[in-house]
Design a protein around this nucleic acid. Structure first.
Length: 408
RNA sequence: GUGGGAUUAGCUCAGUUGGUUAGAGCAUUGGUUUGUGGUGCCGAGGGUCACGGGUUCGAGCCCCGCAUCCCACCCCA
């Protein structure tokens, strides 16, 4: 007989359970609470979207769209793909619900699975989870600062250390001229740069600046810097942003080479990095994307947002100490088991209750109750059966009492 | 997609130049003279050594393939 091959999960797609699930939900509830304090509301968008949405928003030049999408033709001949990031879907929903025309301020947060067909490694999965927020209708740089403060609040609450990197990518007025300047500069030394950089000049010229190649870096020392080529508005905003962060006790470092991988960013760009999770060090990233709404055929609406990678955060989270909680109920005689089950059922109206169906002596019940990490161990034996009582011990302070069943 | 490393019990890992029946700790489970735990004591179960081929009298160990994870590149959360 041929042995059937065991079916396992797809490469880069993990199950989340037990301790991981506890961390996962702890993160979600913490981040949700904080986002709500900042006035954000939950939004859920589909995992599957028309492929064109991501081509137009994230940009065809990006790796994400160029080679990492789970893309296919569905049974209705639609070109669709699993979302590789969260912003595009939220913006699409924002426009589709005509909130761009409604005007005013709209603030959303979301969390859920994202999909990118990449080579997996630590902190990089094919199906991973992000928590993100998007704010529409506020052009003030104070909103950018609020985003950063929110990320900082979340990370602090979770006990996660970080470094914050800041940059400004300029706006429609100052970025394109700068880009031309940079292209000109790079093309002048094209004979001496690496193959990757030659490719980048055409696909994403800004990227040459953070090339890992040492000899390229030497050449780029004299390259024009984006921060020195900002228009006065962008430059003022960036200064204001730094001032707000300083006033609120948030440390940052300016990184002129910080470039967000997605085409839709402008002005403020920021990235939170950790030095404790290997080479995939970005734990949160975001920035302003004032032009994206109109790229997707909405009314021009300023917007800013960020996303956090939940899996990357998970191992950094310092979990609060787990308290003993709930009841363990056990029977010492076979005759008491039915009663124990009945009591457990009643008690579950209000409390967590675990019950052991095996009869055992008191010592073993206490041992089991310990393993369950419950606060109370309640046992019914022949004495209690006779009196209509139940013996209850508080496992934390070691006090015990025998209660009438109706008082339990 | 490219290059490198790893894979032995549920988990973390030993396993000698290829040689009988593959080990430990933790976890699980049973008992521990009769109703008091987390930290005592004794025992038990659990492995086609990732998977598929090959070399050999003999493979956990050597060779080839493949899968997954990890690391670097690329890129990103």
């Amino acid at each position: 007989m041929q042995r059937k091959k065991m079916i396992s999960s797809l490469r880069g797609m993990n199950d989340i359970l037990s301790d991981d699930y506890e961390r996962f939900t702890y993160f979600i509830s913490t981040a949700t609470k904080i986002a709500q304090r900042y006035g954000f509301h939950f939004i859920e968008t589909p995992l599957l979207e028309e492929t064109a949405l991501f081509k137009r928003s994230v940009g065809e030049s990006s790796d994400i769209v160029g080679k990492e999408m789970y893309q296919f033709i569905d049974k209705g001949e639609n070109d669709v793909c699993l979302r590789p990031e969260g912003t595009a879907g939220v913006v699409r929903a924002f426009i589709q619900k005509k909130l761009d025309r409604a005007g005013g301020i709209h603030r959303f947060f979301y969390h859920g699975a994202m999909f990118r067909y990449e080579r997996p490694q630590k902190g990089r999965l094919r199906q991973f989870h992000q928590f993100g927020v998007e704010s529409f209708g506020v052009d003030s740089v104070y909103e950018d600062a609020s985003m950063i403060m929110m990320v900082s609040d979340i990370l602090k609450t979770l006990g996660i250390g970080y470094r914050l990197q800041l940059n400004s990518l300029g706006c429609n007025a100052c970025m394109p001229p700068y880009r031309q300047k940079l292209i000109k500069f790079v093309k002048e030394c094209v004979d001496n740069i690496c193959e990757d950089c030659i490719r980048r000049v055409d696909t994403n010229p800004i990227r040459v600046l953070d090339c890992k190649n040492g000899s390229c870096q030497e050449l780029y020392v004299g390259a024009p810097k984006l921060l020195h080529n900002l228009c006065s508005e962008c430059s003022n905003d960036f200064d204001t942003l730094k001032k707000i962060l300083e006033n609120n006790g948030i440390e940052y470092e300016v990184n002129t080479n910080l470039v967000r991988g997605l085409d839709y960013y402008s002005k403020t760009a920021f990235e939170f990095v950790s030095d404790n999770i290997g080479s995939q060090s970005a734990i949160a990233g975001g920035g302003r994307y004032d032009r994206l709404v109109e790229f997707l055929d909405g009314r021009p609406t300023p917007a800013v947002g960020f996303a956090m990678g939940i899996e990357r955060l998970m191992e950094l989270i310092v979990m609060p100490e787990r308290k003993k909680e709930g009841y363990y109920i056990g029977a010492m005689d076979d005759e008491a088991l039915d009663l124990a089950v009945k009591i457990a059922h009643q008690k579950r109206n209000s409390d967590i209750v675990s019950i052991d169906y095996k009869t055992k002596n008191l010592k073993n019940h206490l041992k089991t109750a310990d393993k369950e990490n419950v606060k109370y161990c309640a046992v019914i034996g022949s004495n209690e059966m006779k009196d209509g009582t139940i013996w209850v011990k508080n496992l934390e302070d070691k006090t015990e009492q025998t209660l009438l069943l109706e008082d339990f």
